[in-house]
Design a protein around this nucleic acid. Structure first.
Lengths: 237, 237
DNA sequence: ACCTGAACACCGTTCAAGT
DNA sequence: ACCTGAACACCGTTCAAGT
């Protein structure tokens, strides 16, 4: 359609016409995302990239949500699971694995947000879950509780990424942060005594510090909190 | 424009022409959301509702994100903060307040998702934060740690709602859940020993049970985990 | 069977022009 | 000053028709 002046490609500087397959589509989607951001990964933009019409993509992908999930599956292959079998405190190793997962999501602002809604179920996601279960098991967390814990930990990591996600790319993010900061600073001590007493403390702390603290809170809580109906461990027989 | 057959409104069955103010716009937005869902709350749909063109809204609202934040502020007024000053275990009261916040978000699927990205800073939000800080203080959580904890608790509640949010409204949600269930069930025991061993346990548990357990994990973790550089409490002098 | 042009039914946001 | 018509630059998804 668009007969834009395209350089005469001989050999295959641009691979003649990339085969239209599910893998090809997902790969193209990840490419566009890395180059232009997730909100440019649209069916239409992708179709253009693959030299076809948007309708053609629906042969391989059910909808946009499914496409996002497939993109994450591909990226999840990059999570570093080596700490699972390494030496050291299981808590630290667990935090390292979760941080690796998080850093991938941080790199792709916006993707975490879709992932929060569209749970993936591919092998890469299973491997991540398996790794976390292994670490929880190493830490002596009872299996039934670990089953819930793995969900909780991944949910926390994913939602933290989602929160950061679009925040810093938006130009108004600063305004917004200022609005909250101002609101906290100006909160009248009569109505909001605790907020007023804490003041700047409420916004203190660098992101990574808060994040690591959050992980520690979760891990500590998990070791301490039995699931409902879970048999109490008998430590003093 | 659309001269659709409209019943001749005398008196004011439909208030003549609702004044175009920020409050009016936010109120109309909440109305449309409650009647048709958040994804129908668009600038154009809203303009139609208010008998004007979409451009007019931009006099009062910076963009869609800001509109969403304003909508949440209004809904946040419904959070039941009475447990803050009630009797009983502070943990249970905290969970009750958080559940009240959550139930409001659950009622408006999708809104939580935007809130995760666009933090509100209005008086209703401050009151909620203040209430949680009061409960943490009652529980003996040191102030500096409570400052971080309030964020963690609200983040968990918000992201849980975001996760549920669009999930059950989407028709494919079941397919997706089935996909995950199938993937977990069929996970080969050689590659995924822990997943295979747990089996159905991974998906067990009703939503509310998991949620309450999650809250308990967080609260327990918070009481147990000092912030970096926080002075250790000396219990055995 | 596989693919797709064209259409349907929408979006957010801007800005020049009107009152 | 306040408001807005019209335009710009897009969307996802479907489906009848083509090869």
């Amino acid at each position: 359609m668009a007969s834009r002046t395209r350089p005469v490609v001989s050999r295959r500087e641009r691979p003649a016409k990339p085969a239209l397959t599910r893998e090809g589509i997902v790969a193209a989607a990840v490419g566009v995302m890395q180059a232009e951001g997730l909100d440019r990964v649209t069916m239409r933009r992708l179709a253009q990239e693959l030299d076809t019409g948007p309708a053609s993509l629906y042969v391989y992908v059910r909808n946009t949500a499914e496409l996002h999930a497939a993109m994450l599956e591909q990226l999840l292959g990059q999570v570093d699971l080596s700490p699972v079998t390494a030496a050291g405190d299981w808590r630290d190793r667990l935090i390292t694995v979760l941080s690796s997962y998080l850093s991938i999501l941080f790199g792709q602002p916006g993707l975490a947000q879709s992932v929060l809604v569209t749970r993936p179920s591919g092998p890469a996601y299973l491997s991540l879950a398996e790794g976390i279960l292994a670490l929880l098991s190493a830490g002596g967390v009872p299996p039934g509780r670990a089953a819930w814990a793995v969900d909780l930990l991944l949910h926390f990591a994913t939602s933290t990424a989602a929160e950061q996600g679009t925040r810093h790319r938006a130009a108004d993010a600063d305004d917004e942060e200022d609005a909250l900061a101002a609101a906290l600073r100006e909160a009248p001590a009569e109505t909001f005594p605790h907020i007023a007493a804490l003041g700047a403390e409420l916004l203190s702390g660098a992101g990574p510090d808060r994040l690591t603290w959050g992980f520690r809170v979760l891990i500590s809580g998990i070791t301490q909190t039995p699931r409902p109906e879970e048999p109490e461990p008998r430590e003093n027989p």
